[in-house]
Design a protein around this nucleic acid. Structure first.
Lengths: 234, 234
DNA sequence: ACCTGAACACCGTTCAAGT
DNA sequence: ACCTGAACACCGTTCAAGT
């Protein structure tokens, strides 16, 4: 840390350097612990110096998201829409998994940065050139939601340490019979993988493929949203 | 506010009263602005008095989630699994929409409270009594993710004010051609609803039904996860 | 034994004073 | 003109002093 601070005093501060340091710091100490003050310290700089390169903390977080989104592989040329989308989304997931804070930060943003917008544009483009109507593309993009960028929308964040999200077997066995049945079966299934709960990659692909298969079915049958609207009002 | 503070001094503080006040305050001023200090002030009480009823702010947020989840309608008896799940999830969505901060707070929790666990148990129960295997139930619960509790997994939070998430038509028209095409079509489609962007309810039900239809198909064909595992390792 | 005010260790950001 | 230290207006929570 002392060495980094010293290097920081030599090399001039740039937006790029600020963002990369912020990403590394968040990787290290977690996003909640990341503060302007600590980031400045890490760069061997007075806190106010950061405000020359980012307007405020919100803009810092935007920039950090851009760094992570920049790590997503470019789209594979010449693939059919289904495997192209699949590949893109799974690559996004890999990028996000490398930065545990990224999914949460992306979701806390109130709007997309140009970099994120470009990513979305490319995914939309895959559907459109794959034969999807504008209408259907619109709805499938909503259906993908943040899964489009590799985010698993689980109900609870994966606990950082060893799994202990479900109450111990004896307690709650009567109150939550179905939860216990399910938890028991999962534990038995995966007892080769010590301490691990569910196979998150499998679950992610399961849901993704379910959606992609659904999209394919709708596209083939020429689905159009007007067919499904319930009355004039909408 | 002065009247509330006075009433607060009379009525003894209870966990219930603290939680209800916190929910009302978050509804009013937003979750970011909710602080232990402001909540205490609203109740006409010194900040430290709150710590008699909630251990810390995390536990306060847990309690607030429980209040919202308590507003979800009980399961409809005698319905088939598909409409029972559908009804439950849409009711959860109604409850969450009444408290704009709720979805974000639920997702920030690291584990389920007993109240949330009971909700999950009831949804799992619908699938199990509807003929789903433990295995398939496990995977469809993951596929539903937080949609199970009515959360729309959009990439960005719905902007509070009038929509302006996409850059103005002239700028970025060349850089994001597919985004612009889609945004243009949506704007044209819904120009009866002034200022509104997408029909969030329609999008939510579109994705939900896509998933439920997929679940039904898998259940009918006796899907089993082992068929789809790629190698021994998992 | 209970309650509570002051204090602690932080924040992000402003701003005026110094170079 | 630039840079930066001190200050402002907050946090959640601790803790010792007062009743």
């Amino acid at each position: 840390m002392a060495r980094q601070a010293e290097a920081g005093r030599r090399t001039p501060l740039t937006r790029e350097r600020v963002l990369r340091a912020a990403v590394a710091l968040a990787d290290g100490i977690g996003i909640e612990a990341l503060s302007m003050r600590k980031l400045a310290q890490e760069l061997g700089v007075v806190p106010m110096a950061l405000y020359k390169h980012v307007a405020n903390k919100e803009q810092l977080l935007d920039g950090m998201v851009d760094v992570v989104v920049g790590e997503i592989d470019p789209p594979a040329p010449g693939a059919d829409w289904k495997s192209a989308v699949r590949q893109r989304v799974l690559s996004a997931r890999r990028a996000l998994l490398a930065h545990p804070w990224a999914a949460r930060v992306i979701q806390s943003r109130s709007g997309p940065t140009p970099v994120v917008l470009a990513y979305m544009d490319s995914v939309i483009g895959i559907f459109r050139t794959g034969g999807f109507s504008v209408d259907l593309t619109h709805h499938v993009m909503h259906a993908l939601g943040s899964r489009m960028i590799g985010i698993t929308q689980e109900l609870f964040d994966p606990p950082p340490g060893p799994r202990a999200q479900v109450p111990a077997p004896q307690e709650g066995a009567g109150e939550y019979p179905y939860v216990m049945e399910l938890a028991g079966a999962v534990a038995h299934d995966k007892d080769s993988v010590v301490g691990q709960g569910c196979d998150d990659q499998f679950e992610f692909e399961f849901a993704l493929d379910l959606l992609l298969d659904g999209f394919e079915r709708l596209q083939r049958q020429g689905w159009f949203s007007a067919d499904h609207m319930r009355d004039e009002g909408r």
